[in-house]
Computed example of a mutant assay.
Amino acid sequence: MDKILIATTNKGKLREFRQIFAQTGIQILSLDDMPERVDVEEDGKTFMENAVKKAEGYGKFYKIPVIAEDSGLEVEALDGYPGVYSARFYEIDFGEKEPVKKDKDTANINKLLRLLANVKKREARFVSVAVFYNPYEEGLIAEGECRGKIALQPRGEKGFGYDPIFVPEGYTKTMAELEPEEKNRISHRGKAVKKLISMLSKVYSLPI
């Protein structure tokens, strides 16, 4: 196995996958590298459902090994929201929708901070489920989480998504203020993908 398709067009996610897989010798492809495009709808009610659906859908279509990852932010004060709606929280009618003035990430952050404006309990966690699917063999699943709290305002330029307002446990910096190597070491996605690589190494003898 010398190539794996990462089922995403998110440049931030793709960058992190390539950083984490750098020592394995495996070429990481994205959906933008595929000659023909097929869309798999993420309509699951859990991160697991979405990740499995994407991995199987793209794996069967392209006939190559695929890793699909679904992740999001769960805020205790909002009963676990945005959760599976993290990427499009701005458009979910949670009180009211948030206009997209700059980009979707900023709209999501603005909405979350508005909802937590007068909330002191700001505990939250990032959750990631990564699924490996090979059309000719059995699949693998790994999960990871990173607990922390929501900052009062965005800080940092190094991350994406909700990184500028998420402060991991034991840190004073937000995810977006951390260097990539440090973020990948503690992040939900980093943990899930490293677990997956460990599983893959036992099957395909990857150098890790």
Rank of each mutant, 00 (worst) to 15 (best):
residue 162 Y to W: 03
residue 205 S to T: 13
residue 144 G to C: 07
residue 186 I to N: 07
residue 110 N to H: 12
residue 115 L to E: 01
residue 35 P to G: 15
residue 183 K to G: 05
residue 140 L to S: 05
residue 9 T to A: 06
residue 23 Q to P: 07
residue 135 P to V: 00
residue 144 G to H: 01
residue 161 G to E: 00
residue 133 Y to F: 15
residue 72 G to E: 08
residue 31 L to K: 07
residue 132 F to G: 01
residue 189 R to N: 10
residue 177 E to Y: 01
residue 10 N to T: 15
residue 132 F to P: 05
residue 157 E to F: 14
residue 67 I to V: 14
residue 87 A to C: 13
residue 195 K to A: 10
residue 9 T to M: 03
residue 87 A to N: 12
residue 165 I to G: 03
residue 145 E to H: 09
residue 67 I to K: 03
residue 63 K to G: 07
residue 166 F to K: 07
residue 168 P to M: 12
residue 186 I to C: 06
residue 44 G to A: 02
residue 75 V to W: 06
residue 118 N to F: 07
residue 140 L to G: 02
residue 36 E to M: 04
residue 43 D to L: 06
residue 129 V to C: 10
residue 4 I to C: 07
residue 163 D to L: 00
residue 70 D to P: 05
residue 166 F to H: 09
residue 71 S to D: 09
residue 158 K to C: 00
residue 81 Y to W: 08
residue 180 P to G: 14
residue 193 V to F: 11
residue 111 K to G: 04
residue 33 D to E: 08
residue 53 K to P: 06
residue 130 A to K: 11
residue 9 T to P: 01
residue 40 V to H: 04
residue 160 F to E: 12
residue 62 Y to T: 05
residue 81 Y to M: 10
residue 94 F to Q: 03
residue 43 D to P: 03
residue 11 K to S: 10
residue 7 A to C: 10
residue 184 N to W: 01
residue 48 M to W: 09
residue 1 M to N: 02
residue 182 E to C: 01
residue 72 G to M: 09
residue 85 Y to H: 15
residue 73 L to H: 08
residue 65 P to E: 04
residue 43 D to N: 14
residue 199 M to L: 13
residue 116 L to I: 03
residue 118 N to M: 03
residue 194 K to F: 01
residue 170 G to A: 04
residue 166 F to A: 10
residue 130 A to W: 08
residue 73 L to C: 12
residue 17 F to Q: 00
residue 22 A to T: 02
residue 129 V to R: 00
residue 66 V to S: 04
residue 196 L to E: 04
residue 58 Y to Q: 08
residue 119 V to Y: 10
residue 66 V to G: 00
residue 15 R to K: 13
residue 78 L to R: 09
residue 160 F to M: 10
residue 191 K to L: 15
residue 72 G to R: 02
residue 42 E to G: 01
residue 96 E to V: 05
residue 19 Q to H: 11
residue 114 R to M: 02
residue 133 Y to N: 08
residue 100 V to M: 02
residue 14 L to S: 08
residue 25 G to L: 12
residue 10 N to R: 14
residue 147 R to W: 08
residue 126 F to C: 01
residue 159 G to C: 13
residue 73 L to G: 08
residue 88 R to M: 02
residue 91 E to A: 14
residue 146 C to T: 04
residue 53 K to V: 10
residue 28 I to H: 06
residue 89 F to I: 11
residue 18 R to F: 05
residue 192 A to P: 04
residue 111 K to Y: 02
residue 207 P to A: 08
residue 203 V to Y: 03
residue 141 I to M: 15
residue 101 K to A: 14
residue 54 K to A: 02
residue 109 I to W: 01
residue 181 E to W: 07
residue 107 A to E: 08
residue 76 E to W: 02
residue 131 V to M: 03
residue 99 P to N: 09
residue 90 Y to S: 04
residue 113 L to V: 11
residue 155 R to F: 12
residue 146 C to A: 05
residue 166 F to V: 10
residue 204 Y to I: 05
residue 76 E to S: 05
residue 59 G to S: 15
residue 8 T to S: 12
residue 20 I to A: 14
residue 142 A to N: 14
residue 129 V to K: 03
residue 102 K to Y: 13
residue 62 Y to V: 06
residue 142 A to C: 15
residue 197 I to F: 13
residue 65 P to D: 03
residue 31 L to A: 08
residue 49 E to C: 06
residue 98 E to S: 07
residue 153 Q to E: 15
residue 127 V to Q: 06
residue 23 Q to S: 13
residue 126 F to S: 05
residue 96 E to N: 00
residue 164 P to H: 13
residue 13 K to Y: 11
